[in-house]
Design a protein around this nucleic acid. Structure first.
Lengths: 216, 216
DNA sequence: AGATAAATCCGTACTGGTGGGTATATAATG
DNA sequence: CATTATATACCCACCAGTACGGATTTATCT
């Protein structure tokens, strides 16, 4: 049934249209064949047990298991699989996690065309890597931000306190929650503001969001 | 060349894969034909001048002209066109803008399948509307939030001041910028906190973001 | 053993903002 | 015209937080 000369690709995306589309796009050509599709990471992990593939093309932001978790699980269970991320956004933090933590071989934004997609699949299949320039740029920028955070040398306690400050706790409440003196809280705040070069909770919280100490 | 029995559809999406995909998906069936595609609103507006279509299938979040602006411009220049939005997210504010301001006839999330897509196109073509349940829910929730804001009865001046507070101006700075007394600023702040049921800048700003008084 | 970093705590003076009032001039609205 | 909404301004008591300062204990690194 399946043509053993073609590169076997598995495709996960929770947007059914993307799946339908990519299947159709890759249908009439010789090099690649989509042999498994799924709408979620969970589903894909199960299907991969039955269907060996060369490449896993995975969306990044999905309900349930996200692309990163899927990549890690797939790598572990099927070590020979090579993974290409296919994402709507090139948000730096996610890109970094995918590349550094999930050990993927390629990263494409969905605003590529089919030629580039094919090229990426083939290159990765042959042992190479394929990362779009935008992705590399985002990664660069992300690592700068990460560096900036580490340069501030915030301690664990300080980060903990920043998180609580974002929850709008007063010094008094912080002292109670952490079982320490208000004076200690004051000292921590002082140091936090100094290190982050801010001088009130609002700008601090903004800083923290920008530097991904806080999320959402 | 084009089959005059088919519903003529134009497709805009800045993700080329989505275009390739949808084209392929809708290729082998009888009712619908994609006759124009573009990667941006600008491009589409130009192309529509040459190519009459029945339905404009438009992505919502695009670089340059977004879906809403495109819908309005298209409606104005080609009044007979019916527009269906095709979006990744069902974020309430955007949905509301599209439906209320841009007067579209349908709204689909990209996690539909081709059957639903076809169904939506046909229904809209025949003068109907097609909105997914999630979309209607988001719209409902959004109108609740809007109502909540209007219930707070914030005055123009107060909203102005909230925006400046988000920029981290002190009472003194506010007074200078607005050329009013600090006392007046204090009064405004007092009233703002009372109306929004907050008691400091951080929670106020969060409230403002949630209620779309501030964006980004 | 000595140095460094992290977390803890305190005093004192000051400032900025909160919360409670009250009050007036001017638009806007019915 | 009368009423209401809006923007303006002030007073005062109070408190939370800041800006200096200095200090100790514990753990970690060299």
């Amino acid at each position: 049934m399946t043509d053993s000369n073609k590169i076997k690709v598995a495709l996960v995306d929770d947007h059914q249209i993307v799946i339908d589309g990519l299947k159709a796009v890759l249908h009439q050509q010789q090099q690649v064949e989509i042999v498994v599709t799924a709408n979620s990471g969970q589903e894909m992990l199960i299907k991969l047990q039955q269907h060996p593939v060369d490449i896993l093309l995975s969306d990044v932001m999905m309900e349930g298991i996200n692309g990163q978790q899927l990549a890690r699980a797939a790598k572990q269970q099927f070590p020979h699989i090579k993974i290409i991320a296919l994402s709507m956004s090139g948000a730096g933090d996610i890109v970094e996690e995918m590349i550094n933590d999930a050990d993927i071989h390629g990263y494409l934004l969905k605003q590529t065309d089919k030629e580039e997609l094919l090229q990426a699949i083939i290159k990765v299949y042959n042992g190479g890597q394929y990362f779009q320039p935008q992705i590399l740029a985002a990664l660069e920028q992300q690592s700068n931000r990460t560096k900036e955070v580490s340069d501030t040398r915030l301690t664990g306690r300080e980060i903990e306190i920043i998180r609580l400050m974002e929850q709008d706790l007063s010094n008094k409440q912080l002292a109670e929650v952490l079982n320490i003196s208000i004076r200690t809280v004051e000292t921590h705040r002082k140091n936090i503001f100094k290190k982050t070069n801010t001088n009130n909770v609002l700008t601090l919280v903004k800083w923290a969001y920008e530097h991904q100490l806080l999320s959402k």
